[in-house]
Computed example of a mutant assay.
Amino acid sequence: MKTLGIAATGMLAQQTNVDVIANNIANANTTGFKSGRAAFQDLIYQTMQREGALTSEDGTARPVGTDIGLGVQAAGVVRLNSQGGLLQTENPLHMAIEGRGFFVLNRPDGSQAYTRDGGFQLSSEGQLVSLSGYEVEPAIVVPQNTRNIEINQEGLVMAYIENDPDPVELGQLTLATFLNEAGMKPIGDNLLEATTASGEATEVSPGDPGIGAVRQGYLENSNVNIIQQITDLISAQRAYEMNSKAIETADQMMSTVNQIK
């Protein structure tokens, strides 16, 4: 009887499913967070009777076979990169991307990371940095005595210094895009990094065709749908219980067989 092993794989799969759902719910208020969905695949099948096998000397063939599946396995966690809602903060250093693209950050080891979290601040040297202290690429340094900062939808950063009525251009923000955004690796701190699955980053300008625009004074909310997550959680719980019930049923059937004399 293969039921014990099959149902056990189902329970393990639902444990993974619940882990993903729990992480989504936990990050419902995380800036720029993208929810995930656990994807599954059925395991290899054991063929008891082959499809198309002859059933008589007259040439009749079996229309269907007897293929017994051996359970399920997790194929991966698919990140859903749909747009999150925009939250107005009125902080001139906060930025949200409305559309495709990622902000680029330089890490201390020289590598680059990517994020949708535009909750930027200034370092002690006046450089634009993330909440983890990573410098925004390209570097934007805000001079002292700056009274106002303006960032347009194309990512052009301008500063009004002291009483000068004319703004000073500080730099042009760029974004990064990937052929397969779902293939990027999450590394924590609202950061992602490129992988062979995602492909190399392509540098683009905000507002280009098919590229998101920068919204100053806004942050992008998580795209987690709490109602959907609760529904998925209940469904996963029921599936787990049914797999557990299948194990109990198989155990009872085996006990019945053992009692036959």
Rank of each mutant, 00 (worst) to 15 (best):
T3E: 08
A7R: 02
A7N: 07
A8G: 06
G10Q: 12
M11V: 13
L12C: 00
L12S: 13
T16C: 01
T16P: 00
N17R: 11
V18L: 15
D19A: 04
V20F: 05
N23R: 03
N23H: 05
N27A: 10
T31L: 06
G32R: 09
F33Q: 09
F33I: 03
K34W: 04
K34Q: 04
K34F: 06
K34S: 01
S35V: 01
G36S: 14
I44P: 00
Y45H: 09
M48I: 13
G52A: 09
S56E: 05
S56H: 03
G59P: 08
T60R: 13
A61D: 01
V64Q: 14
T66V: 15
I68K: 04
I68R: 14
G71S: 14
G71E: 11
V72G: 04
Q73A: 14
Q73P: 02
A74G: 04
A74E: 02
V78N: 10
L80N: 15
E90P: 00
E90F: 10
H94S: 12
R100P: 00
G101P: 09
F103S: 08
N106Y: 01
R107V: 13
G110L: 09
G110F: 13
Q112I: 02
A113Q: 04
Y114V: 13
G118Y: 00
S123H: 07
S124R: 12
G126V: 07
G126P: 07
L128E: 05
V129W: 08
S130H: 11
S130L: 12
L131A: 11
S132T: 14
G133I: 07
Y134S: 12
E135F: 03
E135M: 14
V141M: 05
P143I: 01
N145R: 12
R147W: 00
N148T: 08
I149R: 08
I149L: 14
G155I: 05
A159S: 05
Y160W: 06
Y160L: 07
I161Y: 09
N163E: 13
N163I: 00
N163Y: 02
D166C: 00
P167A: 14
L173Q: 04
L173V: 05
T174L: 03
F178Y: 15
F178N: 09
N180W: 05
K185G: 01
P186Y: 01
P186N: 11
P186C: 06
I187E: 03
D189T: 03
D189I: 00
A194K: 09
S198L: 01
A201I: 03
E203H: 05
E203D: 07
V204T: 08
V204W: 09
P206G: 04
G207P: 06
P209K: 04
P209L: 14
G210M: 09
G210V: 05
G212C: 04
V214H: 00
Q216Y: 02
Y218D: 08
N221Q: 14
N221W: 01
S222N: 10
N223F: 09
N225K: 06
N225M: 01
N225A: 05
I226W: 01
Q228M: 11
T231R: 10
D232F: 03
I234G: 05
I234M: 12
Q237S: 04
R238A: 08
A239H: 03
N243F: 04
N243Q: 10
N243S: 12
S244I: 01
K245A: 11
A246I: 13
I247A: 10
E248P: 00
E248K: 15
E248N: 15
E248V: 15
N258L: 13
K261R: 11
